[in-house]
Design a protein around this nucleic acid. Structure first.
Length: 520
RNA sequence: UGCGCCGUGGAGCAGUGGUUAGCUCGCCAGGCUCAUAACCUGGAGGUCGCAGGUUCAAUCCCUGCCGGCGCAACCA
């Protein structure tokens, strides 16, 4: 395991605001980035917007704006949403930026020089809605089935093609030699199948457009979206503008993408890199989709949900928890207000939040918030025999493999439940009447449970995790910013443990106020 | 049409070639009162879509069928 970790998400079309599906991807990548940082890796987390599309320029025109002004404003809105969700990306590239243009020109020239680009006349039915040529099989009644309102145009033009077909053997060899290149397994099988059945050369330029990147060896042509978009992963880290930085950062450790664009990332992209003689990304992780109560999220059908509408009320952490716990990252999931309330109330309010309340209240009520000689208590009783080191190792593996839902389930089932059960078994509220020392030991155990939980949920619920950690003076012994999963096992020695959480009349404010299902 | 996915107690989901098929919610009974009417214990409830096959043994492997859905080079 090297010291650096470069992770990317797909870049988004800024033709409308982000929806919960796009948010799902960013959060999933963010959890990974935060986890790797905790593990001591030097993380570079890249996101961005895909702006060089004809539709974007048309949309700008409709609004009476210059394309650049339009995409800049959309980029601002996207970044605003991601920031509000505590997505910790280090960079945000817009493909309209000069660093991207410069890198693209260099790259397409390199591939051209390698002999993998050729010019070919093409005549076909062009759908403006799809920004693509349609084959006869795809056309229904002379119209594109996806955009039946628009006439298909017969377009004849000379375009440049990328010799994708020539890379079939090399791609298959790469998949074979690198079984983890495409994950999850189901996606890998799909691509293996696809590539094995043969690849066609792909058109990579368009003629007669001004918005976009001009082909250096033919200024009449602009680079078509996919060839252009994929390159963001290298142009953002210096390809064509800062060689030293590029060398130091590339290749990516993982591209986090949606399952629908797996083929671009697992076939086209590596072929492009092979042609340009650049290293390939180590891994592509294709996540599943989030559905709106079973219905596909579609901007046109109105089933898209603005993340802001959800987390404005219950907070970013609740939003993040819902998607990471409820939707397996590698598979599909659902969003629904009812289900959200159910998960929120059960896991966040009743278990996590309530544990916080009851533990702090007892510390405050029985000991004035100060637990002397805490370091003399072993603080393992609350685990009830659970092998914590083993659990931490399991969680590491699960998170590294994007199995977030399983990781969270285990934290809740094995630790948070254990802590609540521990209170039921030891009954500190009764014990305090007869044995103050024993009660103090119980509360030290509970504080330790909170410390452990805080660290483990840090990649998922960064705000809540910090609140948990800072409920006591743990930070004096071990800084929250530096804490890692190793610290779960290594309990810092603090003689005078004390509640540092803000209390009102001896009680903390509920972290996750219950959602009144009946009222909503 | 091609490729792929799903069908598990009332609801939503896990899951494994083999002791009593798990989890959350809901429901019933009991306990507790520190806590956000939260927490803990126990219970009722499933022929694991249908029909064949492989196997000593299948919910999990194979085939077919029925039903729901996704992708097919625009949509995370």
């Amino acid at each position: 395991m090297s010291g650096s970790f470069f992770i990317t998400t797909a870049i988004d079309y800024p033709n409308s605001r982000p929806h919960i599906g796009t948010a799902f991807e960013k959060i999933g990548a963010d959890v990974q980035a935060r986890f790797r940082r905790m593990e001591g890796r030097s993380v570079h987390f890249l996101m961005g917007n895909d702006e060089n599309t004809i539709k974007v320029s048309q949309r700008a025109e409709e609004l009476g704006a210059e394309p650049k002004a339009y995409v800049d404003d959309m980029a601002r809105q996207f970044r605003e949403v991601w920031a509000a969700l505590d997505v910790s990306n280090d960079d945000f590239i817009q493909t309209s930026e000069e660093r991207h243009h410069a890198g693209c020109r260099k790259f397409i020239q390199a591939v051209f020089d390698a002999g993998d680009i050729y010019k070919k006349a093409y005549t076909g039915l062009y759908c403006n809605g799809c920004e693509a040529f349609k084959t006869e099989k795809e056309v229904e009644n002379g119209r594109c089935p996806l955009h039946p309102a628009a006439e298909l145009k017969v377009v004849e033009e000379e375009n440049y093609f990328f010799r994708l077909s020539a890379f079939q053997d090399r791609l298959l060899a790469h998949y074979d030699a690198n079984p983890d290149f495409i994950t999850p397994e189901s996606r890998r099988n799909e691509i293996l199948n696809l590539v094995a059945t043969g690849l066609q050369d792909v058109s990579i330029t368009r003629k007669g457009f001004t918005w976009g990147i001009r082909v250096p060896f033919d200024p009449e042509q602009t680079i078509y979206v996919w060839f252009d978009a994929l390159l963001n992963y290298i142009t953002a880290v210096g390809y064509g503008t800062d060689d030293a930085r590029f060398e130091a950062t590339w290749p990516a450790d993982v591209h986090v993408i949606g399952k629908d664009i797996t083929r671009f990332h697992c076939a086209l992209w590596p072929a492009m890199l092979m042609s340009a003689q650049l290293p390939l990304p180590r891994r592509v992780f294709a996540h599943g989709f989030v559905y709106n109560k079973g219905a596909k999220i579609s901007k046109s059908a109105g089933t898209a949900i603005d993340p802001m509408d959800v987390f404005r009320v219950h907070g970013a952490d609740a939003f993040r928890y819902y998607f990471m716990r409820e939707c397996p990252f590698g598979g599909d999931g659902n969003y629904g207000d009812d289900r959200f309330a159910e998960v929120y109330n059960a896991d966040l309010a009743d278990n996590l939040g309530n544990l916080y309340s009851r533990a702090l209240t007892m510390c405050s009520k029985y000991f004035g918030g100060v637990l002397e000689d805490a370091d003399a208590v072993e603080a393992r009783a609350w685990l009830a025999g659970l092998d914590l080191a083993k659990l931490v190792e399991d969680l590491r593996g699960l998170i590294a493999n994007f199995e977030y839902n399983v990781a969270l389930q285990r934290i809740w089932l094995e630790l948070i439940d254990a802590a609540n059960r521990y209170i039921a078994v030891t009954q500190p509220f009764k014990l305090i009447k007869t044995d103050a020392d024993a009660t103090r030991a119980v509360l030290v155990n509970l504080a330790e449970a909170m410390r452990v939980v805080a660290i483990l949920i840090k990649p998922f619920l960064p705000r809540t995790a910090e609140t948990f950690y800072r409920a006591f003076n743990f930070d004096d012994a071990r800084s929250w910013d530096d804490v890692s999963y190793d610290d779960v096992i290594a309990r810092p020695a603090i003689a005078k443990l004390q509640v540092t959480a803000p209390l009102h009349e001896g009680k903390p404010t509920p972290l996750f106020p219950k959602i009144d299902v009946k009222a909503s």
